[in-house]
Design a protein around this nucleic acid. Structure first.
Lengths: 316, 316
DNA sequence: GGACCTAAATTGTCCAGGACAAATCATTGA
DNA sequence: TCAATGATTTGTCCTGGACAATTTAGGTCC
């Protein structure tokens, strides 16, 4: 008898869709084409995926995000996939030379170590200290941004558990929100609406943008995440929005992003600017027409200045 | 020519799935069985839904949440649906008499009016004022809780747009998070892990719980929302957790909640307490064995006291 | 009248297998 | 080296059938 109770657990196709982000259609198609995953069937003849297979699926999803092709990786044994993951992550590892004024890699590693060793209080304390030392804007650009990248990479390599990443995200959000609250009331245009499209639940990027803009005195209207396109358009009208800022994390498909942005552009009045940022946007060759892409957080200040200059010379 | 650009916009079936929460399968099945929605087809023969139909679908989803049967409501004209919504919401409206010390219904209505008129600054200011007057604990129990109910009901009745509800949620979260940050460091057990199961993205309830517990000096470890069961168990071990607190909003199915709780109970060590709260839990006849149910926010303090008493007389 | 049980209707999800457009790769020619 | 073209890969959509789970309706007994 197997003593591990996890061995006997099987998931339905919808549970796997939830846990991996792969659509039911895709799961069935992979099975048809590549022979993996090959779930057993339950009493009703419905697919029952083992936890091992789900784990391997997650690994494959990570590799796809790194640029591998499905046909090349599905069907390889798990060990080979893991090796491939580490190799690619190392190769992809961005910008070995840290930018000017960016927090030292060693210090980033120190933060990672705090996360991994579950020292909640220590992590929080060091974040607050860094914030106090650098000021909000530099904290966001020079510390939080590279730390996010580091956490994302560690997660891709499987060096970070899901709950550790959750904890990190919560702490950063808490620190940023508190810092934003402490700022004086906004005193200048533009009025910026901050949100993400449905299927994009990550809030951290939006919060970082809000911090940078709020420091510059812009009026931020945060809607949280996952606002349907037509609702964004309604909100923009109701709040007399000048700029709609959207965030797309790496897990958001480029095709879907393009479609959503195009649709939203059509719903918004012409003078409203549409800024799109995040990992997905950075990967895109070219943004859809009428959309301003935010490649790095430091771009934001430039775009803000640009907007103000244009509007002050062309008053409505 | 129609001047409204929204008229010409059509959505794919996946976009409708995103925006309404109804699965592709369900959308096709409704079309097959009830003749609604009846999307036109694009050049590729694929379904193209008009915004009008999407709007009606959202309305139907609201009615289903109120307990109506699909067969009875799908196919009725929009006007009839709206009337039905108002009627049912009025009938379901809970607890006409406000509890002792609870914020006046008139004041709640005032808040609602601020939300509906998009006065972000005014809303925030009044929330902060109320918080300063009542203190954090009473603010959460006597103001935020009934306000949440009121907002939920207004949304069900269609008196509140999605983006208005998003804005409200963001503001409350901001206010609560700031208040929590301002509290002194925790100085007493228990150590409480706060999170929700996958498919439960609502964070507000968790934040309210965190506020109440933090005021009492308990150590809160917030993981954000949607943590898989096995990860919750891992986190509980890593952080030497005494109590795991889970939140289930009204949109979370009772059956799914029961299954998730039972599974989690099996994964957690015996001495770890498991507290479950939220609208779904309140509806449940009986909580699963080994799980403590939080019916109202005011229960929390009692449960906390109970826990401390038990543990002080039975020191490990 | 109410509690309890059974049969019928309702409803969401799953399945198979076909089709196709968009993206990507490989090849060729300038 | 770069651009254009054809082949391949890949995700999503379609139809129509099946079925388990839930809810409702009908009937019986206390």
């Amino acid at each position: 008898m197997n003593t591990d109770p996890l061995q006997d657990i099987h998931l339905s196709i919808s549970a796997v869709e939830r846990d991996t982000g792969l659509s039911k259609d895709t799961l069935r198609m992979w099975e048809r084409r590549y022979g993996f995953p090959s779930p057993t069937r339950d009493n009703n003849g419905e697919r029952a995926y083992s936890l091992t297979q789900v784990e391997k699926l997650r690994l494959i999803v990570r590799l796809l995000a790194l640029g591998h092709r499905p046909g090349k990786v599905i069907g390889l044994p798990t060990a080979a996939l893991e090796a491939m993951g580490s190799r690619t992550a190392a190769a992809t590892s961005s910008t070995p030379g840290s930018g000017p004024g960016e927090t030292e890699p060693a210090e980033i590693a120190g933060f990672l170590e705090l996360i991994r060793s579950h020292q909640l209080a220590g992590l929080r304390q060091r974040l607050l200290h860094k914030l106090a030392t650098e000021g909000l804007s530099r904290f966001v650009c020079a510390t939080v941004a590279p730390l996010n990248v580091a956490v994302g990479e560690a997660w891709i390599r499987g060096q970070l558990k899901v709950f550790e990443e959750h904890l990190y995200t919560e702490q950063i959000q808490s620190v940023l929100r508190t810092a934003i609250s402490a700022l004086p009331s906004p005193w200048q245009p533009p009025r910026v609406l901050l949100t993400s499209l449905p299927d994009e639940p990550h809030n951290l990027g939006l919060l970082m943008v809000e911090a940078l803009l709020a420091v510059e005195g812009a009026t931020c209207i945060p809607l949280g995440t996952e606002t349907p396109c037509d609702e964004i358009a309604r909100a923009a009208r109701a709040h007399q929005i000048d700029v709609v800022a959207l965030s797309f994390s790496a897990s958001f498909g480029p095709r879907q992003a393009w479609a959503g942005l195009t649709q939203l552009r059509g719903l918004l009045p012409e003078p409203t600017a549409l800024w799109a940022g995040g990992a997905t946007m950075a990967q895109l060759r070219k943004p859809p027409p009428g959309i301003d892409r935010v490649v790095a957080f430091t771009d934001l200040l430039w775009m803000l200045g640009q907007w103000r200059q244009t509007r002050s010379t062309e008053p409505c």
